[in-house]
Design a protein around this nucleic acid. Structure first.
Length: 265
DNA sequence: CTATTTGTTTATCC
DNA sequence: AGGATAAACAAATA
């Protein structure tokens, strides 16, 4: 479910507890979300450490405890982070509960368990964090990088290309549709067939949709305005806010894609 | 009972 | 070798 701005919303749910000290960690090591991690180390390593800082990067979140305890969380399709007060009773799909000395707890739940928790102990940033690609809302995300990537993925539909996290971290299904709709590019157009002028428009729109999503959704999960595609894309029968024409929903790049044929050519 | 899902990883084919 | 595509993962919801 969560894309760039929804992930940022969830990350912020833990931030009011920065500076607090971990009293205990509860987890179920058999759960899929901990695949590949040393859960015994995770459970003991955090205790007594202060929740010292956090960063977001695309769909990834980083939470640091003390100076040497690094926890990464990816929410997958159904992951959620939340905080709870004293006396909280864990629910069915809660996989990780970081209890603080104040009695509050930081909780990760995920029903489908496509999400993932990572853990690293040591003085330096873990490579699963330092190796992430340039963020779209950073100076390193350049039109040249976009151009190179469209060349490498030239035979895939642009919809599928925008979903590739190695170049567009944070872009998910709704954002990709929103970007292509605003840039007036057909989602089934092969990446290599996008002309220079449209590439520039695509670059600008990528940044614009990320900024808009962060502004509207990240602080309090506000509903986007009706002049975005967002409110019209979820079920059959919607109409294009630009033309009033019918929106199409079909599988492109393996995902349900909503687009406006007369608007996007 | 069937189809669907705002995501990634893996296998397979080209 | 590297890219493209479909299946797999798991559970809720319609």
């Amino acid at each position: 479910m969560p894309e760039l701005a929804e992930v940022e919303y969830y990350r912020r749910q833990w931030l009011p507890f920065l500076g607090q000290t971990v009293a205990a960690v509860q987890l179920n090591a058999s759960k899929r979300v901990f695949r590949g991690e040393d859960t015994v180390k995770l459970q003991h390593g955090l205790v007594g450490q202060r929740f010292s800082r956090s960063e977001g990067h695309g769909k990834q979140m980083l939470f640091v405890f003390g100076e040497t305890q690094w926890m990464g969380i990816h929410l997958g399709m159904t992951g959620k982070t939340k905080s709870e007060g004293p006396g909280y009773v864990p629910e069915k799909h809660d996989h990780l509960i970081v209890a603080l000395e104040s009695g509050h707890s930081l909780v990760l739940s995920d029903s489908r368990m496509f999400g993932r928790v990572r853990y690293h102990q040591g003085g330096a940033l873990p490579d699963w964090w330092s190796g992430l690609p340039s963020q779209i809302l950073s100076n390193e995300f350049t039109v040249e990088k976009l151009h190179q990537f469209l060349g490498r993925r030239s035979r895939s539909p642009i919809k599928a290309v925008l979903l590739m996290q190695e170049r567009f971290p944070g872009v998910g299904n709704w954002m990709a549709d929103e970007i292509l709709w605003r840039a007036r590019i057909r989602p089934d157009l092969k990446a290599g067939e996008i002309q220079t002028e449209q590439r520039l428009k695509l670059y600008e729109t990528l940044i614009e949709v990320c900024q808009d999503a962060m502004r509207v959704i990240a602080p309090d999960w506000s509903k986007p305005p009706d002049d975005w595609l967002f409110n019209h894309r979820w079920k059959d029968g919607g109409s294009c806010p630009k033309t009033g024409g019918k929106l199409i929903r079909e599988q492109i790049g393996g995902r349900t894609t909503c687009w406006s044929p007369e608007w996007q050519g």
